[in-house]
Amino acid sequence: MSAPAPLLRIENLSKLYPVKAGPFSRSRETVKAVQDFSLDIGRGEVIGLVGESGSGKTTLGRSILRLIEPTSGTVRFDGVDITKLGPREMREYRRRMQIIFQDPFGSLNPRFTAERIIGEAIDTHRLARNKGERQARIVDLLEKTGLSSSHLTRYPHEFSGGQRQRIGIARALAVGPQFIVADEPVSALDVSVQAQVLNLLQDLKRDLDLTMLMVAHDLGVVEYVSNRVVVMYLGRIMEVAPARKLYANPMHPYTRALLSAVPVPDPTKRRTRTILKGEIPSPIHPPSGCVFRTRCPLAIDECAKVVPPLEAVSEGHLKACIRT
């Protein structure tokens, strides 16, 4: 039997930003934020997307949703290339794809109550026949995300950070989406609250059969919520694997370095720390060949000449490295 078609198929997606070379210069250079990104996301799957700040994770997530327009490549949602759709045709797909933003305060209008913030999407897509149905739907969303009807009339500044993020999640769920991009949904929260929000997302994914792209810079955050993990560096994929395989047997030196920085809860077990030299290079002038080579402890001369292809190590496990 053939495998079921993925809900989302991303092929050779790139996003380039033109920028001026200097304040007094007429010449333009290009920020290569995402380069030739390809990935299939199955229905009901949670993909963890990890990498350092500046790796292009947020740009990728927003390009998939067309909150920013990709420079090239295709995004097929349920078989339809949404990069070719006009504003009217895209409207229906806006309902089916939503985003949870990183900043739980900046993403909420401070002049709107929780009821209006969540109800705005319901009104835009005309999902309620009357005010009673609208309010019942909003209360149901609040309760699903761990809040209650008593929060309807409160403003964002009257909530804690964790509660504000729950409102953001409720807003994303208001239109009944199939696919959600969770853009570092817990990075701005206290550690004690992070686990609560992650557990909430897991429960919602199970109950509503959601497909999700979980963006994070911390591998520890996505370890228990993701089916597969994609490791990204300077706009390119370094490694893709089922979560258990990646954590048990990372193949790319960048993945190993990221994993070595994850805290170990058992003080009797020590993990050898890999310290990467230097900082992430500028996406305006990325290194030739393998973009990770300038910081890689295994780099050889050939790494500067060859862009490593994403090759299979085992079933479902791929890496882009000519040395490992």
Rank of each mutant, 00 (worst) to 15 (best):
E223D: 09
E223K: 14
Y224D: 09
V225N: 01
V225D: 01
S226M: 09
S226N: 10
S226H: 10
N227S: 07
N227M: 01
N227G: 04
V229A: 07
V230P: 06
V231I: 11
M232P: 09
M232D: 12
Y233G: 04
Y233H: 10
Y233E: 06
Y233N: 09
Y233V: 04
L234Q: 11
G235Y: 09
R236T: 15
R236C: 05
I237G: 01
I237R: 03
I237V: 15
E239G: 03
V240A: 00
P242M: 08
P242Y: 09
P242H: 03
A243L: 07
A243F: 06
A243N: 02
R244N: 05
K245G: 02
K245S: 10
K245Y: 06
A248T: 05
A248P: 01
N249E: 06
P250V: 07
P250W: 11
M251G: 07
H252K: 01
P253R: 13
Y254F: 08
T255C: 10
T255D: 07
A257L: 03
A257M: 01
L259D: 08
L259P: 08
L259R: 10
S260K: 00
A261H: 01
V262G: 04
V262A: 08
P263L: 09
P263N: 12
V264F: 14
P265M: 13
P265N: 13
D266C: 13
D266T: 13
P267I: 07
T268A: 14
K269W: 14
R270A: 07
R271F: 14
R271G: 04
R271Y: 08
T272H: 11
T272F: 01
R273W: 00
R273A: 00
R273H: 00
T274S: 10
I275C: 00
I275G: 00
L276T: 09
K277D: 14
K277W: 06
K277C: 04
G278V: 00
G278L: 03
E279M: 12
E279A: 14
I280W: 09
I280L: 13
I280E: 08
S282L: 14
S282F: 08
S282A: 12
P283F: 13
I284Y: 05
P286V: 07
P286T: 07
P287V: 05
P287W: 10
S288F: 04
G289T: 05
G289A: 04
G289V: 01
C290G: 02
V291H: 04
V291T: 02
F292K: 04
R293H: 08
T294S: 11
T294I: 03
R295P: 02
R295W: 08
C296K: 03
C296H: 04
C296V: 04
P297D: 02
P297C: 08
P297R: 05
P297V: 02
D301Q: 10
D301K: 13
A304V: 02
A304S: 06
K305L: 15
V306C: 04
V306W: 01
V306Y: 07
V306D: 06
V307T: 12
V307L: 11
P308S: 10
P309T: 12
P309I: 09
L310Y: 13
L310C: 09
E311D: 15
E311R: 15
E311M: 15
E311F: 14
A312S: 15
V313W: 10
S314M: 05
G316S: 03
G316K: 00
H317P: 15
L318D: 05
K319D: 06
K319A: 15
K319F: 15
